[in-house]
């Protein structure tokens, strides 16, 4: 391993990390602005122009708040909870291909942190599965009935929706025939090759499950404030609460990136090879296009949040087990039949 390779990856990791954090920060502002827009009011507009400094003020406030660890809480696990939540949220973006290769001089730089991972999609899935530990540990260690209820809800919800999510991914993998994320994205070059045209049902199932895995409305039962005070983070204060909320926004960003790259062509945009641009130009525009897609998905997350009311818990479970899982299985069978017909008669 050469030093230049290590330095290149370090720079890439730092850039991705900073972008992730900045987008998560400004998602908090965007959420409140969009809420304001949808409810016909202004939203935060005092700090800076259009409230552009609001996230910084919020962050600063979090740091200076008093930090309380309840007397009955399990101290180590209480601190470990938000730590795990933020770490798992941050490491999940490692396998996402942010763009094609960049030529600088005679060096080819790949815009993906962990390149050539054979099981990229599964890695993503594993990290998402791990994320629930943060919520569970935090909720249990608080030694509070409401926190415990929130943690238990989070666990059962995430397990239920992981199954449907995995099944919808299997149908996608049957189409792409690879588990490597960069190959999946590279296959979708242009516009007609996007996986959304091949897997519309799979995409809808995946998106619903992504909402549930991120604990977003209408699936935010773990922090349902009308029933559970604050849910799993009832006892948390100061930056530990901030980390939980931050990890939620990072998860939203990463799952938007995942949906964009799995189903909506990632960095690919229509007519990208017909414009006669240089490879570097295409790469840079591709990265911008990818981020536009991600931001559109984040906007969609917020749009849904301020439009739909919350589910009841039994409705949540019914939707997961009795609707999404059978639909996903049907999708797998249909995909299999179509693939078989296509391979035998049309190849």
């Amino acid at each position: 391993m050469e030093w230049s390779f290590v330095i290149e990856k370090l720079i890439l990791v730092s850039i991705v990390f900073v972008i992730t954090l900045v987008i998560a920060m400004y998602s908090t502002l965007a959420e409140r602005k969009i809420a304001g827009f949808m409810q016909d009011r202004y939203g935060p507009d005092r700090a800076g122009i259009f409230g552009i400094l609001q996230p910084l003020c919020d962050g600063g406030k979090f740091f200076f708040k008093e930090e309380i660890i309840p007397a009955g809480a399990h101290k180590v696990l209480f601190i470990l909870g938000p730590t795990i939540a933020i770490i798992t949220a941050c490491i999940s973006s490692a396998v996402i291909p942010w763009g094609q290769e960049l030529q600088i001089g005679d060096r080819t730089i790949s815009l993906q942190v962990a390149q050539g991972i054979n099981v990229g999609v599964l890695y993503m899935f594993g990290v998402i599965a791990l994320g629930v530990y943060g919520i569970m540990l935090g909720g249990w260690a608080s030694n509070n009935k409401f926190s415990l209820m929130g943690a238990i809800r989070a666990a059962s919800q995430s397990i239920s929706y992981e199954i449907a999510m995995g099944l919808s991914l299997i149908a996608l993998l049957m189409v792409t025939r690879t588990l490597t994320l960069e190959e999946i994205v590279a296959q979708q070059s242009g516009f007609v090759n996007w996986n959304i045209w091949a897997q519309p049902l799979g995409f809808i199932i995946f998106m619903v499950c992504a909402f549930a895995e991120c604990n977003r409305v209408p699936f935010d039962l773990p922090e349902c404030e009308t029933e559970l005070v604050g849910g799993y983070h009832t006892e948390y204060s100061s930056m530990k609460l901030g980390l939980y909320m931050f990890s939620e926004y990072i998860n939203m960003f990463v799952s938007s990136a995942l949906m964009a790259s799995l189903y909506f062509g990632g960095y690919n945009f229509p007519f990208m090879n017909d414009l006669g641009w240089s490879a570097n130009m295409i790469t840079i525009v591709g990265v911008i296009v990818f981020f536009v897609k991600i931001l559109l998905f984040i906007f969609f997350f917020m749009w849904v949040r301020w439009t739909l009311p919350r589910f009841r818990y039994d409705q949540l479970m019914n939707l997961g087990w009795k609707m999404l899982i059978p639909l996903a299985i049907a999708n797998i069978v249909l995909t299999g039949i179509f693939t078989l017909i296509k391979d035998t008669y049309f190849s």
């Binding site: 054979n118 599964l122 594993g126 599965a129 530990y133 666990a155 397990i159």
Partner: peptide, 26 residues
């Protein structure tokens, strides 16, 4: 053994142990 590693990660760490923890907390 990348596949085995990731499946062990998802199934044992991600699913089964969450269920264990879930039952214990309940």
């Amino acid at each position: 053994a990348q596949f085995l590693a990731v499946v062990n990660f998802i199934v044992y760490m991600g699913a089964i142990m969450v269920l264990f923890l879930f039952v214990l907390m309940l």
